[in-house]
Design a protein around this nucleic acid. Structure first.
Lengths: 178, 178
DNA sequence: TCCTTCATGTAACTAGTTACATGATTAT
DNA sequence: ATAATCATGTAACTAGTTACATGAAGGA
């Protein structure tokens, strides 16, 4: 039975510790978000599927009359995660950038617009890099386990830094031969 | 009326010259593909919508008994494209990388697997950069107009080059503290 | 003859987002 | 009080892919 990538994000989140659906979402929002986002619309149905498949198990943990279901990995779930991570097959890296489409077709507009667009893109990536930086600072203290989390965070920061600089340089070059 | 980004890729393709649906697909496959792919399943319905909206017009150009419909931009379509490209609002750059999710959770597996994964990712981006290079060579001779096409191509090559090197460096670092 | 390219299209499916609905607990 | 956070979920929608179906033209 094939699992979605989102399912593996869930398994990965639960590998660290038992979590509620809400908690998994919060985890994803501040960690995998920049390369794999998770929404409630997928999360809760997916949790059901993983339960049915026996990869996770649940435990009720209400606080007063507020419901809360805590999920944890089963042995099967743990194996499924490890197998998936170990799988050496190449998967495509998906990029979709609307602004890059605009830039691609920007010969259709005047130079000023083109420069503005490049500057906007530089700013966008700078902002994204900054956001990831702050994310890293707020998580720095905890979990020295899972060093790969920080590695991937650094990747994000440096990648967006690279793109920001690239677009900034482009804006300057475009402006130069005005 | 809101148009999809795919619709703008079509308008952009037709801005250069009149094209058939098949031709638009071929154009996208060898140019916008790495940041905005287009499939037939979206292309043909989208062409109908653009016709209805009066942004493009069609002309039958059969070869013998093989049908062919040539599309071209209307004045309205040309304006819609220019307006869209000039729109200064920031749009998110979407990244989705299954292998990066694996890397993120790869503390769950042994070092060897982690190194292998990083190497695979480096190879994947090297291959992608090479593919874009070849694409550039085959298109080099034609169209000195649309210099932004080449700019965006270079961006792709350098971006994938950056990622390839980053992952290669990571693999070496991981291997070093074995 | 047969393979590749040109050419158009649809149906079924998959993945995922957005908006909504509900309500308890905790901090200000 | 009231706002923020914790908590769970669904329905409707949007976007896009894959697989299929069909068939002509041109080159090997």
């Amino acid at each position: 039975m094939e699992l979605s990538n989102t399912a593996y994000v869930i398994l990965g989140a639960l590998h660290e510790r038992p979590r509620s659906g809400y908690d998994i979402k919060a985890f994803a929002d501040q960690s995998t978000r920049h390369f794999w986002a998770v929404s409630y619309g997928q999360l809760y149905p997916e949790l059901k599927r993983l339960l049915d498949a026996g990869l996770i198990e649940s435990e009720d943990q209400p606080t007063g009359s507020r419901q809360r279901t805590l999920y944890r990995l089963t042995r099967m779930g743990d194996e499924a995660l490890a197998d998936w991570v170990s799988d050496a097959s190449l998967r495509p890296c998906e990029f979709r950038d609307e602004m890059l489409v605009r830039l691609f077709f920007s010969d259709a507009v005047e130079l000023d617009k083109r420069v503005e667009l490049a500057r906007n893109m530089a700013g966008r990536h700078q902002a994204q890099a900054d956001g990831l930086c702050r994310q890293g600072e707020s998580r720095r203290q905890k979990t020295k386990e899972n060093p790969m989390h920080e590695v991937v965070l650094r990747f994000g920061i440096e990648l967006h830094g690279f793109m920001s600089e690239w677009y900034e340089r482009l804006a300057e070059q475009l402006e130069a031969n005005r």
